[in-house]
């Protein structure tokens, strides 16, 4: 499955500035593996050393936060949009 991943400003250092990149995978964990293969290191900003989603980063598949779906096992359909939304505190 090919999905589109929205990359926030704070992680664009990994994607050579690209705000939207494509990745492969039938689930969020596969998508993140695919993303990390293309952009090494980016996965570590989204999941911790134990492989769990970091609690200050939200990942949405479509319009839904995967924490309220199946987490990393959330299925990603062909053409799905995955959005990474990190906590920022600037004001």
């Amino acid at each position: 499955m090919s999905v589109s991943v929205r990359v926030p400003t704070i992680l664009r250092t990994y994607t050579e500035g690209a705000s939207e990149v494509s990745a492969e995978g039938a689930s969020l964990s596969e998508v993140l593996e695919s993303l990390d293969a293309s952009y090494p290191g980016i996965k570590g900003r989204i999941v911790d050393e134990q492989g769990a989603l970091r609690r200050f980063v939200n990942v949405y598949v479509g319009n839904d936060d995967v924490r309220f779906l199946d987490g990393l096992d959330t299925p990603t359909a062909e053409g799905a949009q995955v959005s990474v939304i990190p906590a920022v505190a600037g004001g």
Binding site: I10, R54, R55, F56, A87
Partner: peptide, 11 residues
């Protein structure tokens, strides 16, 4: 929305 803050230095 954000259960925990990022560790200092990360953001």
């Amino acid at each position: 929305l954000y259960p925990e803050p990022p560790p200092p230095g990360m953001v």
